[in-house]
Simulated scan of single mutants.
Amino acid sequence: MSLALTTTLPHPFAEAVERTRAALADQGFGILTEIDVQATLKTKLDEDMEPYLILGACNPPLAHRALGVQRQIGLLLPCNVVVRADPDRPDHTLVEAMNPDLMVRVSGEPDLEPVARDAAEKLRAAIDALSAQS
């Protein structure tokens, strides 16, 4: 099992972020949280790094189903989607979505399998749409 569903976009970071937001929205995901890792590391540690954004994506019906199976699953929500500049290719951006199968593996709760499957289908569709736009 892979940790992430991944694609590389031949677009600069800012454009890739907007495309990622749109692809997630098309699959019913809203962005609940946003962490600008680059800015945080610069502010807190005076450390420079490439643009790196963590989007906390939530599909409310899927989250509701998962929480109905196991309340502690909220520890693994929302689904994180990382958009980061490719350090080796400045015109390219990596987009990585958490593999929802991790919820099942980490929790050991087999009743989460259908929710994880549906979430993975939607996240894969978003990643595939980004790849198709390239």
Score class of each variant (00 low, 15 high):
Met1Ser: 10
Met1Ala: 08
Met1Lys: 08
Ser2Lys: 07
Ser2Phe: 04
Ala4Asn: 11
Ala4Arg: 03
Thr6Asn: 13
Thr6His: 13
Thr7Trp: 00
Leu9Gly: 03
Pro12Leu: 06
Phe13Ser: 00
Ala14Lys: 11
Ala14Arg: 12
Glu15Leu: 08
Ala16His: 06
Glu18Cys: 04
Glu18Leu: 02
Arg21Ser: 02
Ala22Ile: 12
Leu24Gln: 02
Leu24Ile: 05
Leu24Cys: 05
Ala25Gln: 07
Gln27Leu: 10
Thr33Pro: 11
Ile35Cys: 03
Asp36Ile: 11
Ala39Lys: 12
Ala39Met: 05
Thr40Ile: 03
Lys44Ile: 05
Lys44Pro: 07
Leu45Phe: 13
Asp46Val: 08
Asp48Leu: 12
Asp48Arg: 13
Pro51Asn: 04
Pro51Ser: 04
Leu53Ser: 03
Ile54Trp: 06
Gly56Leu: 06
Asn59Ser: 07
Ala63Asn: 02
Leu67Asn: 05
Gln72Gly: 14
Gln72Phe: 13
Gln72Ala: 15
Leu75Asp: 10
Leu76Ala: 13
Leu77Ser: 02
Asp86Asn: 08
Asp86Glu: 09
Arg89Ser: 14
Leu94Ala: 14
Val95Arg: 00
Glu96Pro: 14
Leu102His: 07
Met103Ser: 01
Val106Glu: 12
Ser107Met: 11
Gly108Tyr: 07
Glu109His: 07
Leu112Asn: 03
Glu113Lys: 12
Arg117Asp: 14
Asp118Ala: 15
Ala120His: 05
Leu123Cys: 06
Arg124Cys: 08
Ile127Trp: 12
Ile127Val: 15
Ile127His: 07
Asp128Leu: 01
Ala129Leu: 05
Ala132His: 09
Gln133Arg: 12
